[in-house]
Computed example of a mutant assay.
Amino acid sequence: MKPLTIRIAGGSLAGLFTAILLQKDGHDVKIYERSSSGLAGRGAGLVPQAELFHVLREIGCEHVARIGVVAKERIYFDAAGGIAQVVAMPQMQVSWDYLFESVHSRLSADSYILGRHVEAVHEDEDGVTLSFPDGTQERADLVIGADGIGSAVRGSLNRDAANSFAGYVAWRGLVPETALPEEASVLLDRFAFYVAPGIHALGYLVPGPHGEMQVGQRRYNWVWYRPTPAEKLAAAFTGKDGRRFEHSLPRGELSDERRALLRHDAFDRLPPPFALAIETEDNPSIQGIFDYEAEWMASGRLALVGDAAFVVRPHTAMGVSKAAGDAIALRAALKGTDDLSAALSRYQRDRWAVGKEIAAYGRRLAASAL
């Protein structure tokens, strides 16, 4: 396809993968990220899948896929902290921080604009108008919504743009492995689980923030899924100074009282190794678990990638790989023809069923785990 002026709303991994691939094909691409401070340091750990390896090769970051901690087996605790089951299932976990920084470094320096929130888009026959909160506007040939769970772009494609709360949240922590007490050392080098009625906790090691893999420089990532009534969600996402967040509570926003209650609940309801790991985290975060399935991922001059199109349950460990697959498919569709509308129609056909399948898979996993 001839070079296009392409603007991407959202600067997380979905936006980065898409932007880098399209820049490589000669398009004029810029990312507008609403955060003024950037996204570095916001992630934890993830389990890489085939699409992630594929996109890393394409953008020249294949080395990142080798920077990971291997869990030699999966273990399942009983309530007392004994190991009830061992499954020989080696698996590698990578650092979101290191992945993000490595991928970000492959983007042209002037292409990533912080503190620029795409508030709305309007599509017409000749292009797309992007609108910003300061009243300014910009024109583009193609706009890609990579703006995640709170996407402002998806509403221009779909009548129903609202996320659906799944009835539970994920409490998350990421601590230096050296912070874990000796009594929790059973967690190291293993992928650990505890599953009981209404309880699902897991944890694993990931590299350090700059890809460190040496013993003592890695980090322990834990997740505790907890049922939460919808009417209590607003309170759960209210920070210590009263600020309200829409879909999550970031690190550093939990009050001392709520942190103390979390620790109390952990020792009351979880096996001791997990409770000890949770106790070491001074700044846990809370992620709301939502569902969203776009009816339309693309139109004549708009496209959605990543969580802007399909929000899937984290149990799948496929969120980042799904975003990589979207970026790969969108690039392939655009390379295949000079007809933009036809290219986006092909992208819709290629990826919509994939998103539906992953979303359904996530719901099945959640039903069996909670």
Results as ranks from 00 to 15, higher is better:
Y194T: 04
V86M: 03
Y225S: 06
D307K: 12
K356L: 13
Y347N: 10
M89H: 11
G325W: 03
A367L: 10
L202C: 07
E231K: 15
P181M: 04
S185L: 00
Q287F: 14
Q348M: 09
V186F: 06
Q23M: 02
V305S: 08
F165M: 09
I20P: 09
S111R: 05
L340V: 06
L188A: 03
V223D: 00
F237C: 10
I358K: 12
D268I: 00
H117M: 11
R301I: 06
G150E: 05
S151H: 10
A277W: 09
R331Q: 14
V55M: 05
P90T: 04
S37F: 10
G26P: 06
K240H: 10
R154A: 09
I59K: 06
G355N: 06
R34P: 01
V175K: 11
D110S: 09
V70A: 03
L157I: 11
A369W: 10
K2M: 11
T178R: 15
E123H: 08
P197A: 12
D307E: 14
E51K: 13
D25A: 09
D241P: 01
I20V: 14
V223I: 14
A79G: 00
A230D: 06
V153S: 11
D350G: 01
T136Y: 02
F267Q: 07
I8H: 10
N158K: 11
A19F: 03
A9F: 09
I20L: 02
T129G: 04
R66N: 06
L304A: 08
S36G: 15
R42V: 07
A303H: 03
L202W: 05
E183G: 11
P176M: 10
I59W: 11
A324M: 03
E51S: 15
P314I: 10
F165I: 04
G115I: 09
G127N: 05
E231V: 12
A303M: 07
A179V: 04
G15S: 05
Y32V: 01
E119G: 07
A343N: 01
D268R: 15
W352G: 00
V312P: 09
D256G: 10
G155K: 15
D97K: 03
Q137E: 04
T316G: 02
K2P: 02
D241R: 15
R263N: 07
E58M: 14
S185K: 12
G135Y: 05
Y168F: 13
N221A: 08
A236V: 13
E125D: 12
G336D: 12
E293Q: 14
S108P: 00
D307T: 04
Q348L: 07
G45S: 05
G11A: 10
S131I: 04
L188I: 08
V311G: 04
Q85K: 15
A230P: 02
L39A: 12
I59E: 02
L22Q: 09
E231R: 15
A161H: 15
G38K: 10
T337R: 05
Q217P: 00
V312Y: 06
H264F: 14
E58T: 00
